[in-house]
Amino acid sequence: MKEIHATELAEKLKYNEKVNIIDVREDEEVAQGVIPGAKQIRLGEVPERLNELNKEEHYYIVCRSGGRSGRATEYLEANGYDATNMEGGMLAWEDETEIPK
């Protein structure tokens, strides 16, 4: 499984690289703040929402500490998607967040 550190992903955002971030946390966790531009797909919803993802794109998967996102990354890879787990999750994220609407 591919992994990226939170600081590396933050650098990509700072340099305006096109990144697709999927946040697999629950609503109450997401309400505390998300990485700007991240799309929420709860871990339990990933299988039924695969149609929202494009196999031609790369996805960075995020959760609170890296465990759930690791499971989601493995699932996506097993289904032919290009995905990378953000190790340490939001606990390791030191850059700005936004509160989802």
Rank of each mutant, 00 (worst) to 15 (best):
I21W: 01
L43I: 10
R25K: 09
K39F: 05
E45N: 14
E29T: 06
Q40H: 10
G33T: 06
E45A: 15
E45R: 14
I35T: 04
V19N: 01
I22W: 00
P36C: 05
Y15I: 14
R42F: 13
E17F: 12
E48K: 11
E17C: 02
R49Y: 07
N20Q: 11
I41K: 03
V30G: 02
E28R: 11
Q40W: 01
V34I: 15
A38R: 03
E48F: 07
N51K: 11
E17N: 11
Q40P: 10
A31F: 08
E45K: 10
L50Q: 01
A38E: 03
E45H: 11
E48W: 10
L50C: 00
P36M: 09
E26S: 08
D23C: 03
N16S: 15
R25S: 09
E52S: 06
G37S: 00
V46S: 01
E17I: 07
Q32A: 15
V19S: 09
D27M: 11
Y15A: 14
D27H: 07
D27T: 11
A31T: 08
E52G: 10
I21H: 04
Y15C: 14
R49C: 06
P36K: 08
P47D: 03
I22E: 00
V30K: 02
V46I: 15
A31V: 08
E45G: 04
L50R: 00
D23P: 06
E26L: 11
N20H: 14
E45I: 00
R49W: 01
G44E: 09
D27N: 06
R49N: 14
G33W: 02
D27W: 04
R42P: 15
N20S: 13
N51I: 12
G33N: 01
E26C: 08
V24C: 04
G44H: 06
L50T: 02
P36A: 11
Q32G: 12
G37N: 10
G44Y: 01
Q40L: 13
R42G: 05
A38W: 06
N20K: 12
K39N: 08
K18L: 13
D27F: 08
E17W: 07
V30M: 11
Q40D: 07
P36R: 00
V19M: 04
E52L: 05
E29H: 10
G37R: 01
Q32Y: 08
